[in-house]
Amino acid sequence: MTDVRTVQVTFDCADPRAVGLFWNQALGYQVPPPPPGFDSWEALDATLPADQQGSRWAAVDPNGVGPRLFFQRVPEPKQSKNRLHLDVRAAPGLDGDERMAALESECERLVAIGATRISRTEPAPPMEGGFIVMADPEGNEFCLD
């Protein structure tokens, strides 16, 4: 039998804290506690060389179900469409107009916290239930599904 592995999803970004806080709000995630010996992440950050301060951030599912998200600062801006993206399950089990209304509602909430709406694909049964393509505050694409 093969061992099952867990995954961490890593985002390259210019502002790890800002992108991480967006995804906390988007997914209901939270900031993990700082390592032993530190009262806060800011206290740990203060011990790092100036060029490394603010270079990393993390978000975790408070229920321990979803993958850990890790955000790392990179010097270059985003260049093109993601080759991998997240599907945020905002309307599981819903179909047709009810599904699209739930996706639109979640889209509005995410736009209010910094996301950008890119496009909407209408349902086309039996293969396509419909979805909305969005981007986080730094342009990383994701779908509301």
Rank of each mutant, 00 (worst) to 15 (best):
N140P: 01
A135K: 14
I132F: 01
L21V: 09
T10N: 09
F11M: 06
G114I: 08
W57S: 14
G130I: 07
R17Y: 11
F71T: 04
P35D: 08
P49S: 15
Q53L: 09
D145C: 13
E108I: 04
R120F: 04
Q72Y: 04
D45V: 03
V7T: 13
P77E: 06
P92I: 03
R83H: 10
G28N: 08
A135N: 03
Q25Y: 02
G66N: 15
K78L: 14
P75S: 13
D39R: 13
H85F: 14
W41V: 06
T10P: 01
I132S: 00
V19G: 06
V133M: 14
R83W: 07
R83S: 14
S40W: 05
A58H: 12
G37Y: 00
N24I: 11
Q52C: 11
Y29C: 00
P77L: 02
A46D: 12
R5G: 05
L27Y: 00
V111L: 12
I132C: 04
R89Y: 01
G20C: 14
R73S: 12
E106W: 07
G28R: 09
P77K: 06
L27K: 00
L86E: 00
A46W: 05
V111W: 02
V65H: 14
L27V: 00
F22T: 05
D45K: 03
E106L: 10
P33S: 08
G114D: 04
A101K: 13
R109W: 12
T6N: 05
P35E: 07
C13G: 05
R109H: 15
R5D: 09
L86V: 11
K81A: 13
Q25T: 06
L86D: 00
G93W: 07
G28F: 07
R83A: 14
Q79D: 05
I118T: 14
V133R: 11
R68Q: 13
A18D: 06
P36F: 00
Q72F: 04
M100T: 07
R5W: 08
A18Y: 03
C13P: 10
G130T: 13
L69V: 04
I118R: 09
E122M: 14
V19W: 01
G139R: 01
A90L: 02
E128N: 14
G54V: 06
A91C: 06
E42W: 00
S105M: 13
I113E: 05
G96W: 12
V133N: 04
P125W: 09
A115M: 08
V60I: 15
S105R: 15
A102Y: 05
G93K: 03
N63C: 05
A59F: 07
F70H: 07
G64Q: 14
C13Q: 15
G64E: 13
F38G: 03
T121K: 12
L94W: 09
F11N: 10
E98G: 08
D145L: 11
K81C: 02
R109A: 11
A102E: 12
Q25R: 15
G66I: 03
M127P: 01
L48G: 09
G28P: 12
R120W: 09
I113R: 15
F131W: 15
E42F: 03
R89F: 07
V74Q: 03
D145R: 06
V74Y: 02
V4H: 12
P32K: 04
E106P: 01
N24G: 02
N24L: 11
G96P: 13
W41F: 15
T6Y: 04
K81P: 00
I118L: 13
